[in-house]
């Protein structure tokens, strides 16, 4: 079934088209939810709520841009809304002292490639990983993130900086990336005038 057919069917509230659309996009969207969620079950709850919004608001889709991008934004916003309901989340994004946070080695799984990167992101503290997900992966600006999470823009920036540093450390430790080599500056000989 083509995307257009699925879309038209969904606009008519056709269950077959809805299922086709869901089957097509749900694996990727669940991957997104999983990055935000505490565990798989929470991720599935986020996915469920996200797709209900997708189907109930699909008439608002204006064919401007890819359908996947539109669905993705709804799913991300749903994840954020669900996270914001959790009190722990509001505590997490206000953390100012990053030095007090330590990642335990056993928290970092070593399943390879994409999943490994995702799991490393998930091992970050809640506030960090949320900002990192939104900024680095979903492409939201710090201003947008600040609005979404009800925090200051500067907080979003500092959270991201710390999250990035922490994630880099984890990825290096897991040998997924290597430490960047310091650039060697070459100084030319000064010719006598």
């Amino acid at each position: 079934m083509t995307e257009e057919l699925m879309l038209n069917g969904c606009l008519r509230n056709n269950a077959t088209s809805q299922e086709a659309l869901y089957s097509h996009f749900s694996p990727k969207m669940l991957g997104i939810c999983y990055r935000f969620a505490k565990n798989r079950e929470d991720a599935e709850d986020m996915l469920q709520e996200g797709f209900i919004k997708v189907f109930t608001q699909i008439h608002q889709y204006r064919n401007e841009g890819a359908l996947e991008g539109w669905i993705r934004r709804i799913v991300v916003h749903t994840c954020i809304n669900i996270l914001k309901k959790n009190k722990k989340f509001s505590d997490s994004v206000d953390i100012t002292n990053a030095n007090s946070i330590r990642i335990r080695e056993e928290m970092i799984p070593s399943i390879i490639q994409a999943k490994q990167v995702v799991e490393c992101i998930r091992s970050l503290p809640l506030g960090y990983k949320t900002v990192l997900n939104l900024y680095a992966i979903e492409g939201y600006s710090h201003k947008e993130i600040a609005l979404m999470l009800d925090i200051e823009e500067s907080t979003s920036r500092s959270q991201y900086t710390r999250a990035k540093a922490m994630l880099e450390e984890i990825l290096i430790r897991k040998k997924i990336i290597q430490k960047p080599k310091k650039k060697i500056k070459f100084y030319g000989a000064v010719s006598p005038s």
Partner: peptide, 9 residues
Amino acid sequence: KTDLFRMFP
């Protein structure tokens, strides 16, 4: 890397 990640609900 994360765009490659898929999970089946």
